Amino acid sequence: MSSDNYQSAYSDASFWGKAKSHAKSAGKSAMEPALKMYYAAQDPETPAWAKAVIYSALGYFILPLDVIPDITPVAGYSDDVAVLAAALAATAANIKDVHVTKAKETLARWFS
């Protein structure tokens, strides 16, 4: 599946649905970069190319068919984490302190 397909698979509703229902099983290592990028993608100052990378990665995260199924114990989210980490590295210059703060606030609510 191409990155265009992952980007077209993305929607806010499906992202929040998976994020909220799978946060504990995905863990902070998956959720933190996903949330940082989500908030960056919502920022009108984030360039279009970075949003395309972010939405592609988030589309992969929410897609039910992964390289490694999310229900697989231990390894289930490892492919998601790898995709999210690569996208985060590519778009890091566009992740602002405010995005990091919002992500940490969301994680604190989910993991407290």
Rank of each mutant, 00 (worst) to 15 (best):
A108L: 15
Y39F: 14
G76P: 02
A90K: 15
P33C: 07
D79R: 14
V74A: 06
D43E: 02
N94I: 11
S8W: 08
A103N: 07
S112N: 13
P44K: 07
D43A: 00
G17I: 01
P69G: 09
D12R: 06
M1Y: 10
A48R: 10
I95R: 09
H99V: 07
E105W: 12
A90I: 14
P47Y: 01
A34G: 08
D66L: 00
P47C: 03
Y60D: 03
I71L: 01
V98D: 08
V83K: 06
A50K: 01
S56A: 06
Y6C: 05
A57S: 12
Y55G: 01
A57W: 03
F61D: 01
A92D: 09
L35Q: 05
S3G: 02
L58M: 02
E32M: 10
F15I: 06
V100A: 14
A85F: 04
S78H: 07
G27N: 12
L35Y: 10
A40D: 04
A87D: 13
V53H: 04
S25K: 13
V83M: 09
W49N: 05
T106W: 12
L65R: 14
D12M: 00
V98K: 13
S112Q: 14
T106L: 09
K18D: 11
R109F: 07
A30H: 13
K104C: 11
K104Y: 12
Q7R: 13
A19C: 08
A57Q: 04
A87M: 12
I62Y: 09
T91V: 15
K28I: 06
Y39I: 03
Y60M: 07
Q7L: 11
Q42R: 00
I62K: 03
P44Y: 08
T91W: 07
A50S: 08
A82P: 01
L107A: 05
A41V: 04
K24N: 10
A89L: 13
I68C: 08
F61A: 12
N94V: 13
V53E: 12
Y55I: 02
P44W: 09
S112I: 14
K18E: 10
M37Q: 02
L65S: 08
D70Q: 08
P64S: 03
S2Y: 01
L63P: 00
V81G: 02
W49H: 07
N94F: 15
V83I: 15
A52T: 15
A103W: 13
Y55V: 06
L84P: 13
Y39W: 10
N5T: 13
A75E: 07
R109N: 12
T91P: 00
L107T: 03
